[in-house]
Design a binder for these strands. Structure first.
Lengths: 151, 151
DNA sequence: TTCATATAGATGCAATTGCATCGATAAGGA
DNA sequence: TCCTTATCGATGCAATTGCATCTATATGAA
């Protein structure tokens, strides 16, 4: 089996993508830390749970949404629960599982994080590309998803 | 001081960027691991050192190039040296420092990693976007760099 | 029912990473 | 020269992450 070789353009785009996204995420994490706020992963989970509403989510449903390993979700939820940001409820029809729901403090924390996170996004993305360019970027990135999905 | 709010388009582009790049990098790391190869960070350092040629590089010069913290570079170089992939040479005009140079084994390892890494890039980027789209993507991403630089 | 297998979630332990600091040399001013 | 400060690189220790496995419940076939 012969391995494929990427074009120079593919290499350049890849390098930019990896480097830029790392810089953006790291600088955002720094901003959160500087404001005494928890990491982005906490926001991701709180966001998903807030969207899910009163019904909450099962831990295994969070795995794909926040791109964390199973043990990562398990431990992150343990910390969120310890901080009173989420609560775990037993689920009636499956004795193995639980349902995780965001608490009032959790919603407040989500707002606090968003105040910084949103400003970072505005500063690092919104202010640098036009709406049209943002749409183009999102569309191009969409075609890199695995599995390929509709735009 | 009032915080800025990002547009919906900025949020969407940000989310895609972060998620897609994470998936791409993780799947590439998985491919390397599956082939018994070291992580991408090893490639990054070997690549920079190969480009630097016989003169090698000082560790502190690697920090910005591979986006690693100072202690990260220090420890990664220690591992690369333990594996015989790089060698550390004292530098005459600065008693604190050293020069790091890639070895023959290091070059070979770089080729091995690239066989898998390059195929991943081709598969995940080159095969999905046209050359024109790759250029557009790289250009848009270039405008997100910090500090803003020419394209 | 009974047993084999699959799934949900937690966790012990090892490896890695981050933070703070250290030792050593350099640089620069008094 | 002497002393203060800055830079280079390494490292002790704590926190985090990854891997493998564990417990408990569910599912499904015989």
């Amino acid at each position: 089996m012969t391995k494929k070789s990427p074009s120079l353009e593919a290499i350049a785009a890849w390098a930019r993508l990896v480097r830029v996204s790392r810089q953006l995420v790291e600088s955002t994490e720094d901003a959160l830390k500087a404001n005494g706020l928890p990491p982005l992963a906490w926001y991701d989970v709180l966001h998903e749970l807030a969207e899910a509403g009163e019904g909450g989510l099962r831990p295994f449903e969070l795995i794909d949404r926040v791109l964390l390993a199973q043990y990562g979700v398990s431990r992150l939820l343990a910390r969120l629960e310890a901080d009173g940001l989420v609560e775990k409820l037993p689920v009636s029809d499956d004795g193995r599982g639980q349902t995780v729901r965001i608490t009032a403090s959790g919603r407040e924390m989500r707002r606090c994080i968003w105040a910084v996170y949103g400003a970072c996004i505005a500063d690092r993305m919104g202010d640098r590309l036009s709406v049209q360019d943002l749409k183009t970027l999102a569309s191009l990135l969409g075609r890199l998803r695995d599995p390929p999905a509709s735009d």
